[in-house]
Design a protein around this nucleic acid. Structure first.
Length: 277
DNA sequence: ACGTTGTCCTGTCTGC
DNA sequence: TGCAGACAGGACAACG
C-alpha cells in the first residue's frame, strides 16, 4: 500500500528519469481511472505536454506539466508506475496495465493497478497543490513548518481515537494503515487512546515517532509488504524493520509481549497490548 | 463531531 | 483437490 514513504520513493526514482521529457502520446486502456478537466479528453489533453517537475503531497504524486497543469496520481493500494528505458520497452506488458505514456526519448511509463482503485487526474497546478483530492489535506508530517506545538494543539481538539485519527488525511497527510500502526507502536501508545487525553510527553513521543518512522521508511525505500515497487520496479526494505504491522503472534521488539491484530474502524490494527498504553 | 458501514476491485488465502 | 466465501484496504459517501 503506497503511503507517504512509498510515494516519495516513487517520486525520487522517477524524477531523474522523466523530468524534462515530453509526453508524445497516451494510451488509456481503462478510461474510468482517468479524469480530465471538464469538456476535455484526457489523452488529448496530455499529448505534447512537457513534464516540468515531480512533486508529492501526502500520498498524491504530482507530475507538474507545462501550461500550469498537473497530473495528480493516487496509487491507492495496488497502483504501480514503472518507467522503461528505450531498450526495455519490449518487456512484456504486465496484466492490468491501464495507461501507457510514450515519452519523447523513446521510453515508456506504464501505469498498472490490479484493483483499479487508483486514479489519474489532470487539473490546474494551483488546485493540485492546494487540494489534490476531494477533501482538504492536513499538514505534511515531514515539512519543516509542521511543528510540535501545532500538532499538540490539533490533538487537543480531537476526541477521537488515535488509530482512526492518524488515518484521517485531513488531520495529517500521508499515513496509511502500516505507518499509523508503526508510529503508535514506536510511541508506546495504544490505538484506542483518545487524542485529547494525551499529555505533553505522550504527544511529543507521537510527533517524534510519526516523523521518525516516515523518514526511516523513505530511507529504506518503502515497505514492500505485498505489491509495492518503486518507479524502477524495485522493492523496498522497510518490511524488515516493522514493529507491529504484519507481526501478529510475534514478540514485541520492545518488551517481548505478543503482538495482536484486532479490527479498528474496519481496519486491521496491530499493536502490543503490554507496552502500548 | 464521531463512529460505523458500504462501495469500488481482484488476487490470495481459508475453510469445508 | 475444488470451490465458495472472506479478506486486504484508501478515499469517499451515507447514515445513526
Amino acid at each position: 500500500m503506497p503511503e507517504l514513504p512509498e510515494v516519495e520513493t516513487v517520486r525520487r526514482s522517477l524524477a531523474g528519469r522523466i523530468t524534462g521529457l515530453t509526453i508524445e502520446k497516451v494510451e488509456l486502456r481503462l478510461p474510468k481511472i482517468a479524469i480530465a478537466l471538464p469538456g476535455t479528453l484526457f489523452t488529448d489533453a496530455l499529448g505534447g505536454r512537457r513534464i516540468i517537475e515531480l512533486g508529492r503531497r501526502g500520498k498524491y504524486l504530482l507530475l507538474h506539466l507545462d501550461g500550469d497543469e498537473t497530473l495528480v496520481i493516487h496509487l491507492r493500494m495496488t497502483g504501480r508506475l514503472i518507467h522503461l528505458r528505450p531498450e526495455e520497452r519490449g518487456a512484456p506488458e504486465p496484466a492490468h496495465t491501464h495507461a501507457v505514456f510514450f515519452l519523447d526519448d523513446g521510453s515508456l511509463l506504464r501505469y498498472t493497478d490490479v484493483r483499479q482503485f487508483g486514479t489519474l487526474t489532470l487539473m490546474a497546478t494551483a488546485a493540485a497543490l492546494q487540494q489534490p483530492g476531494k477533501g482538504r489535506l492536513g499538514p505534511e508530517p515531514l515539512a519543516e513548518d509542521f511543528s510540535f506545538p501545532d500538532f499538540r494543539n490539533a490533538l487537543a481538539k480531537r476526541k477521537t481515537k488515535l488509530k482512526p485519527l492518524l488515518l484521517d488525511q485531513s488531520f495529517l497527510a500521508g499515513l496509511g494503515n502500516i505507518y499509523a500502526d508503526e508510529a503508535l507502536a514506536r510511541a508506546g501508545l495504544h490505538p484506542d487512546r483518545t487524542a485529547d487525553a494525551l499529555d505533553d510527553e505522550e504527544s511529543r513521543r507521537l510527533y517524534d515517532c510519526i516523523r521518525t518512522v516516515l523518514q526511516e521508511g523513505i530511507d529504506a525505500k518503502g515497505t514492500s509488504f505485498r505489491d509495492y515497487v518503486d518507479g524502477e520496479g524495485r522493492k523496498g526494505e522497510f518490511q524488515e524493520k516493522l514493529w507491529a504491522y504484519g507481526r501478529e503472534r510475534n514478540p514485541c521488539r520492545r518488551c517481548g509481549g505478543e503482538i495482536v491484530r484486532e479490527k479498528r474502524a474496519g481496519r486491521s490494527t496491530h499493536f502490543c497490548p503490554r507496552c502500548q498504553k
